[in-house]
């Protein structure tokens, strides 16, 4: 009856330097989204938007971020994400970056299914970017972790290159 319906926005964090130097956590992304909504939509926007908003998933190696919002706030979130210009880098400064929206889904499972498909196409390019063997194995592990769905566990074989 009164069940809040949500939308999950999957975005990719893009910044110039390919190497992962910055420590981006869920809290950092949450604060960035909230600040940009406050700047664009003011007190009213924050009041409507904040309940039900959360950062559900973040993968630093593949740079995937999944933000959840209520269904009626989707337009606000989707239109505010392009305005994020920088994120704090954990050392007091800020590094320039932006979020590229990849996919909007109605549930986490739907987003995950899409992410698996996306990763299958993008994994070869990602591996090329990694310089050391240790980074490659870390990258592979994080992708496998992200594609595990509770109902049907993916085995390593399906994601192998």
């Amino acid at each position: 009856m009164v069940r809040f319906k949500h939308r999950y926005v999957l975005a990719e964090l893009v910044f110039g330097n390919d190497l992962l130097v910055y420590n981006v956590t869920q809290r950092v992304v949450y604060a960035a989204v909230r600040d940009i909504i406050e700047q664009l939509h003011g007190g009213y926007g924050i009041g409507l938007f904040t309940p039900g908003m959360s950062v559900k998933y973040i993968n630093e190696y593949t740079r995937m971020v999944m933000v959840r919002c209520r269904r009626e706030n989707l337009k606000i979130l989707a239109s505010a994400i392009p305005f994020i210009k920088h994120l704090p880098d954990g050392k007091g400064g800020q590094f320039p970056c932006f979020l590229r929206t990849l996919h909007v889904g109605g549930s986490i499972k739907a987003c995950q299914k899409w992410l698996v498909q996306h990763n299958r196409q993008v994994l070869p390019t990602l591996l090329l970017r990694c310089t050391s063997e240790e980074e490659k194995s870390r990258m592979r592990k994080s992708i496998f972790d992200s594609t595990i769905v509770k109902e049907e566990p993916w085995t390593e074989g399906k994601n192998d290159t």
């Binding site: 909504i37 406050e38 700047q39 664009l40 939509h41 003011g42 007190g43 009213y44 926007g45």
Partner: peptide
């Protein structure tokens, strides 16, 4: 501005 932000 305070109530509706820059868009307002």
């Amino acid at each position: 501005m305070s109530m509706y932000g820059e868009i307002g």
